[in-house]
Design a protein around this nucleic acid. Structure first.
Length: 686
DNA sequence: GCACCGTGTCATAAG
DNA sequence: ACCTTATGACACGGT
């Protein structure tokens, strides 16, 4: 798998932050009338703005103001444009948020059409207006990747292969719910984010049990996005099949699915249909809790086990990178609805259609406010993106999708809520195991993750996989076994000390399954960390050994150099002494007997010994570094050890010392050195 | 299709 | 007896 172009994830991600910040600054400037160079007159009411901003998000303004120069430009809009319709658009241009009501939505739409807010129109109104009013008033529905994301299938529960299953019967109830929410003044983003008890209650109350599977009210685009990648990537078919089986089985992530009767049963019943095809966005939005069971991988298959945390990180950060990854975001879905200056919504967000796969069309747009690239939940942005954007390989894309699916599933399956609305479990982030690197994702930081949450991420290195694996074990050992819901975060399982961990276990009356799960997670997590340490030690050891070898080689080289220098010095010294001896003997005119005495008390290394006529005359002492004995060998050892030199050669007392020829101080050989640098006798002394 | 690498997991031993 | 740690071996996916 090769990448045709370099990745640029960082830049993509940075632009997202920057654009949001930039937009905010521009909005502040507009409010303070700072640097505003345009006055828009609508119904005799003036709006100050920056023409660059308006020109960027409106074809009308682009045409009107780009050709004009000078300050204090005034643009009077047509009569069809009303203040009621224009004001929200202006706000949208500067905030990427469109505040609307059921009453002014049509005005906004009309103004948007006139002013050329086409993206907003397609991405937002095509979805919103049908929800507000009868479908007959909504006009033709845009088809995204073969079908409009919110478009309902011809038949409920159709298994026609598109797999959207987006709830053919969710229409009326859906509309009611949507309208009701909107009437509270919540914008579309809030529709996504405020999946609060009310929405859940609506879903639970309004939906018949048999329809519940179609209304996984999560508002999560990734859920819609996370449709069978295997359908597009045979390489992951095994992986996907395993996940699909698990999904259809009972893949619920620990503590994820609501144990409440209605939603739980709904989720369970929805599992099988959900596997038949990509989940419908509408369905997701409606269903609320209990989503995880149907859409998450639940556990990793054996094929998925190897998907590491790095891949998870890649799948999680940064958000906008998936835009090019799955296609052109502008060709449909929310890609067309993104606000000026806002980061381009990812394909996941925009359509989740994965290259036009109808089955994956997403209705992400349905859940997200148009023009906003932010994920539906401020705390789960990174899952939507990954580095590299369009440069990602297909495999990586699939992995990212799948991981994103799992991530969202975990996220979207928050701890079940008690009837009072209070969560009985820990927060989603506590349940998620993100690799340490994910904390480095600035998006997470920017999204208000608390330090505790980050620590939870950081400390629970493998909890994601642990959860998956746990589910796997559940799936293998006890098929369809209920999820294991823990009263404390997974990270505690790993990070706590032994005593603390035992205390925690004592504090909570856990079932056998829970205990097994907890211990299994703790064991594997610690073992995984230990394996990392072990491997790191190995590598460090190898590295240190390599360094040591290198050092030893360097030392050897230095020693050899030093040895050569010493040998040269020794030879020079020997020559000096030899010359002195020669002169002394010449001047003293010693008798042979006297020379014998001198030689007797001299070492073979001493030039004096050569005066005795011994072989050392022609064989100067060797370099002790190269030979423990002088090269004269046994012949020189014949000297009695009367005066053994400490560092001198060892003499065998049993061997008689041969007689040396008396040099008469005439020709003394230099010491032999071990580096073959000793000059020959003739060359030096003759 | 193969080799190599990285990683998680298991089994086991030792502390 | 239990837990933790280290490590070899294995399986798996990615490149």
């Amino acid at each position: 798998m090769s990448f045709e172009s370099p990745r640029s994830s960082v830049f993509t991600f940075q632009s997202s932050v920057h654009s949001a910040h930039l937009l905010g600054c521009l909005n502040e400037q507009r409010k303070r009338d700072v640097l505003c160079d345009l006055t828009v007159v609508v119904e005799n009411k003036g709006f100050r703005a920056h023409r660059s901003v308006l020109a960027s998000c409106s074809e009308y303004f682009h045409t009107r103001v780009t050709s004009l120069v000078g300050q204090g430009l005034v643009v009077t809009l047509p009569d069809e444009v009303t203040v009621e319709g224009f004001d929200p658009l202006l706000e949208f241009a500067y905030t990427a948020k469109l505040l609307f009501t059921k009453e002014n939505i049509l005005d906004i739409r009309r103004c948007a059409n006139i002013l050329g807010f086409h993206n907003l129109d397609k991405g937002c109104f095509d979805f919103l207006i049908p929800k507000f009013f009868d479908s007959s008033r909504a006009g033709p529905r845009k088809v995204c990747c073969g079908r409009k994301s919110w478009e309902k299938p011809a038949k409920a529960g159709s298994s026609d292969g598109d797999g959207d299953g987006d709830g053919g019967d969710d229409g009326d109830n859906d509309d009611d719910k949507e309208v009701e929410v909107k009437e509270e003044g919540v914008d579309t983003e809030s529709l996504v984010e405020n999946r609060g008890p009310k929405t859940a209650a609506l879903s639970a109350n309004a939906k018949p049990a048999d329809e519940a599977p179609r209304s996984l009210g999560t508002g999560c685009p990734v859920v819609a996005m996370a449709t069978d990648p295997a359908l597009r990537c045979p390489k992951y078919r095994k992986f996907q099949n395993a996940c699909g089986k698990e999904r259809s089985r009972s893949p619920q992530v620990p503590s994820s699915s609501s144990s409440s009767s209605s939603s739980s049963s709904s989720s369970s019943s929805s599992l099988a249909p959900a596997t038949k095809g990509p989940p419908s966005p509408v369905r997701h939005r409606e269903e609320g809790s209990g989503l995880v069971g149907s859409v998450s991988s639940g556990r990793k298959s054996e094929g998925a086990k190897a998907i590491g945390n790095e891949a998870a990180v890649a799948a999680m950060c940064p958000p906008p990178a998936l835009v090019p990854l799955l296609g052109n975001p502008d060709d449909g879905g929310f890609g067309e609805a993104r606000a000026p200056g806002a980061a381009r919504p990812t394909r996941f967000l925009a359509c989740a259609s994965g290259g036009g796969d109808e089955g994956q069309e997403g209705g992400v747009g349905n859940h997200q406010r148009p023009g906003v690239s932010d994920p539906p939940h401020p705390k789960i942005p990174c899952i939507l993106g990954e580095e590299g954007g369009g440069e990602r390989s297909t495999v990586e894309r699939e992995v990212a999708e799948h991981l994103a699916k799992g991530f969202w599933s975990a996220y979207l399956n928050p701890p079940k809520e008690s009837p009072t609305g209070q969560s009985s479990g820990y927060s989603w982030c506590e349940r998620l195991a993100l690799p340490p690197g994910v904390l480095d994702c600035p998006f997470l930081q920017d999204q208000g993750l608390s330090q505790a949450e980050k620590r939870a991420y950081d400390s629970s290195l493998n909890s994601l996989e642990d959860s998956d694996t746990e589910a796997a074990s559940e799936g293998t050992s006890s098929q369809g076994a209920p999820e294991v819901q823990l009263p404390y975060p997974v990270e505690q399982i790993v990070s706590l000390s032994r005593n603390d961990f035992q205390n925690v276990l004592k504090q909570h009356q856990l079932t056998r399954e829970q205990l097994d799960f907890v211990h299994d997670v703790r064991r594997r997590s610690k073992n995984c960390i230990a394996a990392r340490r072990c491997r790191k030690r190995k590598l460090d050891c190898i590295h240190s050994l390599e360094c040591e070898i290198q050092e030893l080689r360097s030392e050897k080289k230095l020693l050899e150099q030093e040895k050569a220098e010493l040998a040269e010095l020794k030879m020079q010294t020997w020559q000096d002494i030899s010359g002195l001896c020669h002169r002394v003997l010449s001047e003293a005119a010693l008798q042979p007997e006297q020379l014998q005495v001198l030689a007797k008390y001299s070492t073979p290394d001493c030039p004096l010994s050569s005066l005795t006529g011994l072989p050392s005359l022609l064989s100067p002492p060797t370099d002790p570094s190269t030979s423990a004995r002088p090269l004269t060998g046994p012949s020189t050892s014949a000297y009695p050890p009367a005066h053994p030199s400490p560092g001198g050669p060892h003499r065998d007392p049993q061997v008689p010392r041969p007689q040396r020829p008396i040099a008469s101080g005439r020709c003394l050989a230099p010491p032999r050195v071990g580096v073959a640098s000793a000059p020959s006798l003739t060359s030096v002394w003759t």
